[in-house]
């Protein structure tokens, strides 16, 4: 029983963290900072998917969302402009 309560508490904490991360990405003017926070968001998302018992999606999200998407976005920001407005 205690273990079930702990898993639910971890689930709630992770969802709150995700919402805070999404809001910070929405507010940040520096695009590099926004992308790094988005990478942390993806990593927390893959931890949440481990909590929800889908290890396949967690592996794929950790590799694609936190790895490749971040690198590609930073490469494009390096070629264009860094600051919004």
């Amino acid at each position: 029983m205690r273990q079930v309560i702990d898993v639910v508490a971890l689930n709630v904490i992770l969802v709150v963290f995700l919402i805070v991360c999404a809001l910070v990405v929405e507010r940040t003017k520096d695009l590099i900072s926004a992308v790094i926070i988005f990478s942390a968001y993806s990593l927390m998302m893959s931890v949440l998917w481990l909590v929800l018992k889908t290890p396949d999606v967690a592996l794929t999200e950790a590799a694609i969302g936190a790895g490749v998407t971040t690198i590609i976005l930073i490469a494009v920001i390096g070629r264009t402009k860094r600051y919004e407005k």
């Binding site: 396949d56 967690a58 592996l59 794929t60 694609i64 790895g67 690198i71």
Partner: peptide, 17 residues
């Protein structure tokens, strides 16, 4: 086991990156 073509292929691509 968990995993498959997409996750593993992305890992190999990431090492080349």
């Amino acid at each position: 086991s968990p995993g498959g073509g997409f996750a593993g292929g992305t890992m190999i691509g990431t090492s080349l990156i």
